[in-house]
Nucleic acid binder design. Structure first.
Length: 273
DNA sequence: AACAAGACCTGCATGC
DNA sequence: TGCATGCAGGTCTTGT
């Protein structure tokens, strides 16, 4: 599921339910997801006050009192739901946080059938998983110039480069395809051939597609739901992803798909060069 | 050093 | 109906 817009959607929905509130109870279902979870995680979360929620790429960061941060990644199939009544524990519910509240308690449920997601705690400084990550595409450090620099050293296709979190953080398969369509660039184009003009268009298209997807609550293909249970409506605005054979909204040419580094790419041969 | 392929895991759609 | 196959929003590890 979750690329930057989906994780950002989750973060925004969790803010009112978690920030400034205390974790009154924690349930952990199994000792490992993608990797082993911290020892005694449930006990270490219980009683903690939650500070600001932030996001880095596709990671969600929950600051806790005592200068510790909980890091969450939703993998491919992870989702987070907010309940206002105590929920029954479902088959793939791996973490449930009960949030004490002056008004009413809330339960935060992390569910991940495929278990590619992950939860960790870290203290001072940064986490190894965040080190080396590229700039936030919606932040000030990201620009056409930095993007062009990153692409200049690569001989592989630009589509594959966009999926590398060291180049730019938070882009996954859907938004890589959509951004390339928005910029009129073929996914097969070799990275280093993207110079000023195309880099300008690509940086702008990346920002544009991510902003619009956040506004729509992300893209729901199968697993993604917003924490309140709503789907993400950007699925209705996809230009190319998942549309192989269907006519391009811009020129009518049938959308094509191909496999690059084991991932499906979708593009319009009429609009993208 | 960059790149592609394999691995991890479950669920779902498809086709026989 | 049952079963095999392929595919899925990610990314670490391995091998070239």
């Amino acid at each position: 599921m979750p690329e930057l817009p989906e994780v950002e959607t989750v973060r925004r929905a969790l803010v009112p339910a978690m920030e400034g509130r205390r974790i009154s109870n924690a349930y952990i279902g199994r000792p490992d997801l993608r990797w082993p979870l911290p020892d005694n995680l449930a006990a270490r979360l219980t009683g903690r006050m939650v500070g600001p929620l932030s996001r880095r790429g596709k990671f969600l960061l929950v600051s806790l009192d005592g200068d510790e941060t909980m890091l969450m990644h939703l993998g491919m199939s992870g989702s987070v739901r907010i309940h206002h009544k105590r929920p029954a524990i479902g088959r793939h519910d791996h973490m449930v946080l009960e949030m004490a509240g002056a008004a009413a308690p809330a339960w935060i449920v992390f569910n991940d059938p495929r278990r590619f997601g992950w939860i960790d705690l870290f203290g001072d400084g940064t986490h190894p998983m965040l080190a080396g990550m590229g700039p936030e595409p919606l932040g000030n450090e990201f620009s056409a110039a930095t993007l062009m620099d990153g692409l200049a050293a690569r001989r592989g296709p630009v589509k594959t480069a966009l999926l590398d979190q060291r180049l730019v953080a938070g882009i996954g398969n859907i938004y890589a395809c959509e951004a390339l369509f928005g910029a009129g660039i073929s996914p097969r184009r070799r990275s280093y051939t993207i110079r000023r003009q195309r880099a300008d268009r690509l940086a702008a298209a990346i920002k544009d597609v991510l902003v619009r997807a956040i506004e729509d609550g992300g893209t729901s293909l199968r697993d993604h739901v917003q924490p309140g249970g709503e789907i993400g409506y950007f699925v209705q605005r996809l230009s190319v992803y998942g549309r192989a054979g269907a006519p391009c909204h811009s020129c009518g040419t049938p959308i094509r798909s191909l496999v690059q580094s084991g991932r499906s790419s979708f593009y319009c041969p009429g609009c993208q060069r």
